[in-house]
Computed example of a mutant assay.
Amino acid sequence: MHIAVLVANTDESAFAQGHPKDGAKFATLLHEQRPDWRVSSFSVKDGEFPAAGAQFDGWIITGSPASVHDSDAWVAQLFGLIRQIVARGDRLFGACFGHQAIALALGGVVGDNPGGWVFGAVDTVMEGQQIRLYAAHKEQVLVVPEGAVVLGGNAECAVGSFAIGRSVLTTQYHPEMTHGFMAALVAEYAGKLPTEVAAQARASLNTPADRDVIAGRMVRFFDENRL
Rank of each mutant, 00 (worst) to 15 (best):
V44D: 08
K45G: 11
F49A: 04
A51F: 09
G53E: 12
G53T: 15
Q55E: 15
D57I: 03
D57L: 00
D57E: 06
G58D: 06
G58F: 13
W59C: 00
I60Y: 02
I61A: 14
T62S: 15
G63R: 14
G63C: 12
A66R: 06
V68A: 09
V68Y: 12
V68Q: 12
D72G: 04
V75K: 07
Q77R: 14
L78K: 01
L78V: 00
F79C: 10
L81V: 02
L81I: 01
R83T: 10
I85A: 05
V86Y: 02
R88L: 09
R91M: 08
L92K: 05
F93I: 02
F93S: 03
A95S: 15
A95H: 05
A95I: 02
C96T: 02
G98K: 13
H99I: 01
H99D: 08
Q100Y: 14
A101W: 14
I102W: 08
A103P: 08
L104I: 04
L104R: 14
A105L: 07
L106S: 07
G107H: 08
G107A: 12
V109L: 09
V109K: 11
V110D: 08
G111F: 11
G116V: 09
G116E: 02
V118A: 04
F119G: 00
F119L: 02
A121L: 03
V122W: 07
V125W: 03
V125N: 04
E127Y: 00
Q129T: 05
Q130E: 08
Q130R: 11
R132W: 06
R132P: 09
R132T: 03
L133R: 05
L133Q: 13
